[in-house]
């Protein structure tokens, strides 16, 4: 039985190859917050909108096909709708303000040794650790 870390490593390699395809094929960063904003017309600069839409549509398509191939994947969301809404608002605003998220800064920028991306990744990881720790302390889950 393969361990979770093997799936993690393999999935990570696929994510890296997808980002490499974007970089070497289209000359662009596979930054999902930026492409997502661009796809729905919420960003003034970036990839052509059609290109952003095709990349974004590919995400659920690929996830669907992989889930089918695996015979289903189990997902556990926060039960509370308000939690999802608050988190979504903060993620949307924060990723635009900080010009990127886990994909753009974490994968593409860090591998480029961009000082901005390395800094952003360290900050959002630290902030994520702190948020979960604080929620644990306050008894919110």
């Amino acid at each position: 039985m393969p361990e979770a870390w093997m799936f993690g490593l393999l999935g990570g390699l696929m994510i890296g190859c997808a980002s490499a395809l974007m970089l070497l094929g289209l000359g662009r960063i596979a930054g999902i917050s930026g492409l997502g904003a661009r796809a729905v017309g919420l960003a003034d600069a970036g990839a052509p909108q059609s290109l952003a839409i095709f990349f974004i549509v590919g995400l659920p398509l690929g996830a669907f096909l992989m889930a089918r191939a695996l015979g289903g994947v189990s997902l556990h969301f926060p039960p509370n709708i308000a939690t999802l809404i608050i988190a979504g608002l903060v993620v949307g605003f924060g990723t635009r303000l900080g010009s990127g998220c886990t994909s753009g800064h974490g994968v593409c920028g860090m591998s480029r040794f961009s000082r901005r991306s390395i800094s952003a990744t360290l900050v959002f990881m630290a902030s994520g650790f702190a948020t979960v720790a604080l929620m644990r302390l306050l008894g919110i889950s």
């Binding site: 993690g8 095709f54 590919g58």
Partner: peptide
């Protein structure tokens, strides 16, 4: 290219387990 990259990325997320918020 964009659709392929997106689909490969999405498949990688599902395989890695990172599609699960928990």
């Amino acid at each position: 290219f964009a659709l392929l990259a997106g689909a490969l990325f999405g498949a990688g997320l599902a395989l890695s387990g990172m599609s699960d918020p928990a």
